[in-house]
Design a protein around this nucleic acid. Structure first.
Length: 300
DNA sequence: GCCCAGGAGAAGG
DNA sequence: CCTTCTCATGGG
C-alpha cells in the first residue's frame, strides 16, 4: 500500500511537534526525521509534514482510510485560521501564545481511550502517564489488526514498547489497543498491580463497569457519575473525546498561566472558568491548548 | 531525600 | 457550600 498525501495544508495551521506535544495525546513518539509514529483509532500510523510543500503524508494509507478516519482525527475540516483571528481580536494575550505554538489542532480521539487516558492523568506527570498507558495496552489490550508485510513497512512500535514484548517487536507487529470497557471491567486491582497505576487502578475498573452497564457518557451528567472523573478530567474528555471545543480544562499549568497572563488568583478556578467562557467563548479548548503549550514548554 | 505531577474522593467544617 | 487530607508512584 502506498502513502496518502494531503496537499494544501497550511504550515501556520498544522505543526506536528505542537499537535503531539501539547498534552492531548499520549501514544505518539517523534522520529528522528520529525515524523510522528503512534497508535490511534485502532491503527498504527505515521504522520509526516513538509512545510515548504504544505504536504501532509500518512504512511501506508489509502484514500478510504484517510476519509474514514484521519481526516476527522486531525480535524482537517475545521478552519483554524479564522478561529485564531477571532480569538486574537477578542483577546490580545492569547495572540502571543498562538504565535508561539502555531499549528496546534484539537484531535478527535476515541472517547473510551480518552476516558482511560485522562483518569490515569490525574495528579501524574506526562512521561509516566505515557508509560502507564503503553503498559496497560501491552498487558491487557487487543493486538492491532495485522496488516500485510508491505503495509507494516518495518513498524516496530513506539518507543515505550521497547523492552516490552520484544518478540512482537521483532516480528514487526507490535502495537496494542487499550483494553475495552468489558476487558477492564473483568480485571481486579491485583491484575492491574504490575501497571503501577497507584490509586487510579480502582477508578479505571469502576468506571469500566459503569460504561459496560450504562454505555459511554454523552453529557455532563453522565460524566459526573464516572469514578475518577472530576471537573478537570471531565473537561478533557469533552474537549478531546466529545468534540466540545468550548471545554476549558483547568490544570496546574493553566492555573499558573492564567495567573501570570491575566492576573487571576491561582486558586480561584471559578473565576478562571468564567473568564474563559467570556473571553474565549465556543473556542475555549483551542485557547486552552495554546496556553498549556505556552506555559509548559517554558515560553513564560 | 525532596517536591511535584494535565486531581479526585472523602471527611470535616 | 467550602476547605483540607489522603491517596500511589516515579520523574526531575
Amino acid at each position: 500500500m502506498s502513502n496518502y498525501i494531503v496537499k494544501g495544508v497550511s504550515a501556520r495551521e498544522f505543526n506536528l511537534d505542537h499537535i503531539f506535544d501539547c498534552g492531548q495525546c499520549f501514544r505518539f513518539a517523534r522520529e528522528e526525521d520529525g515524523s510522528y509514529r503512534g497508535i490511534a483509532m485502532g491503527k498504527a500510523v505515521t504522520f509526516s509534514y513538509c512545510a515548504d510543500r504544505e504536504e501532509l503524508t500518512i504512511e501506508n494509507c489509502c484514500e478510504e482510510e484517510f476519509n474514514g478516519i484521519w481526516k476527522r482525527y486531525l480535524d482537517l475540516d475545521r478552519d483554524y485560521s479564522s478561529i485564531k483571528m477571532w480569538l486574537s481580536a477578542r483577546d490580545k494575550t492569547i495572540g502571543k501564545a498562538m504565535e508561539y505554538g502555531y499549528g496546534i489542532r484539537i484531535l478527535n480521539q476515541n472517547l473510551w481511550e480518552i476516558i482511560v487516558s485522562f483518569i490515569i492523568s490525574a495528579n501524574n506527570n506526562i512521561p509516566r502517564i505515557k508509560g502507564c498507558i503503553e503498559n496497560l495496552a501491552r498487558e491487557f489490550g487487543e493486538p492491532l489488526e495485522r496488516k500485510s508485510r508491505d503495509e507494516l513497512n518495518g513498524f516496530v512500535g513506539v518507543e515505550a514498547f521497547e523492552g516490552g514484548n520484544s518478540e512482537e517487536n521483532q516480528r514487526g507487529g507490535a502495537g496494542f489497543n487499550l483494553p475495552s470497557p468489558e476487558k477492564l471491567a473483568s480485571l481486579t486491582i491485583e491484575d492491574l498491580a504490575p501497571i503501577k497505576l497507584g490509586y487510579r487502578a480502582k477508578y479505571l475498573i469502576e468506571t469500566a463497569k459503569l460504561v459496560v452497564a450504562n454505555g459511554l457518557p454523552e453529557n455532563d451528567e453522565d460524566l459526573k457519575k464516572l469514578v475518577g472523573v472530576g471537573p478537570k478530567v471531565a473537561s478533557c474528555i469533552k474537549l478531546f473525546g466529545m468534540g466540545d471545543m468550548a471545554s476549558f480544562p483547568i490544570d496546574v499549568w493553566v492555573k499558573r498561566v492564567m495567573n501570570h497572563l491575566y492576573g487571576i488568583d491561582e486558586k480561584d478556578m471559578k473565576a478562571m472558568a468564567v473568564f474563559a467562557r467570556e473571553h474565549f467563548g465556543e473556542y475555549g479548548g483551542i485557547a486552552q491548548q495554546y496556553l498549556f503549550y505556552f506555559m509548559r514548554t517554558g515560553a513564560l
